[in-house]
Structure formats: structure tokens, C-alpha cells
């Protein structure tokens, strides 16, 4: 059984390295983030397999931490899009606000 689990871990690693190609190619930021998400999930799978192979209960904690923080990068990414979008909006509006800003400056 241990051999089978080792092979399973290797296959998971291969699938993870395949995801690396998608990170490299993109094309969009969203595609890269999705690949990173896959990395988190596959990482959890590999850690679980390693925990069983090496019979080390502590490794389950690591899998737990990895899965807890799996969505954090995506959250940051979504916020990133928001920022850039609204900044683009703001800069298009900026000419309108110029007089108000100048007034404020003078005070």
C-alpha cells in the first residue's frame, strides 16, 4: 500500500508541475490565480499522502493550515482588481475634481 501511496503522491506532484505551465502562460491574471489555487489543493493532497506514508500525525496539521489559507491569495487578488478598476475610474474623474482639490490646497 505504501508504494501505491508513493506513486499517488508522485502523480499529484506531476499534476502540480503541469499547473506551473498555466501559471507561466497565463494569459490573464485570473488564470494564474486559478492555477495557484490548484497548487494549494494539490499541496494539501500531497501533504495528506505524505502524512499517511510517513505515519506522522503532525502532518495533518500542516494540511489543515494549508487548506485554511487556500483562499487568502484569491481574496487578495480580487481586492487587487477592485483597486485597479476604481483607480482607473478615479483618474478619469480627476479632471472634474481639480477645482475642488485646488480650493482645499489653498486653505
Amino acid at each position: 500500500m505504501a508504494d501505491f501511496l508513493t506513486i499517488a503522491a508522485i502523480v499529484l506532484l506531476i499534476s502540480l508541475l503541469l499547473g506551473l505551465i498555466r501559471v507561466w502562460r497565463g494569459p490573464g491574471a485570473a488564470d494564474r490565480m486559478l492555477a495557484a489555487q490548484l497548487f494549494g489543493t494539490t499541496g494539501v493532497g500531497i501533504v495528506l499522502l505524505l502524512a499517511v506514508i510517513t505515519d506522522n500525525g503532525a502532518l495533518f496539521d500542516i494540511a489543515l493550515v494549508l487548506s485554511l489559507l487556500a483562499a487568502v491569495a484569491i481574496l487578495a487578488f480580487v481586492r487587487r482588481l477592485k483597486l485597479q478598476q476604481s483607480a482607473a475610474d478615479a483618474s478619469s474623474l480627476s479632471t472634474k475634481n481639480d477645482t475642488a482639490a485646488n480650493k482645499k490646497e489653498g486653505q
Binding site: Q37, F60, A70, L75, V78
Partner: peptide
């Protein structure tokens, strides 16, 4: 329980991030 929790967390994270993206 820990193993199951891993799955539940990943499930939630993946569905939320799929939705968000």
C-alpha cells in the same frame, strides 16, 4: 476529523474563489 476538515475547507475555499473569479 482533521482530514475531513481539510476537505471541507478546501471545498469552501474553492467554491468561493471560483465564484469570486
Amino acid at each position: 476529523l482533521k482530514i475531513l476538515l481539510c476537505w471541507v475547507l478546501i471545498l469552501a475555499a474553492s467554491s468561493v474563489s471560483a465564484y469570486l473569479v
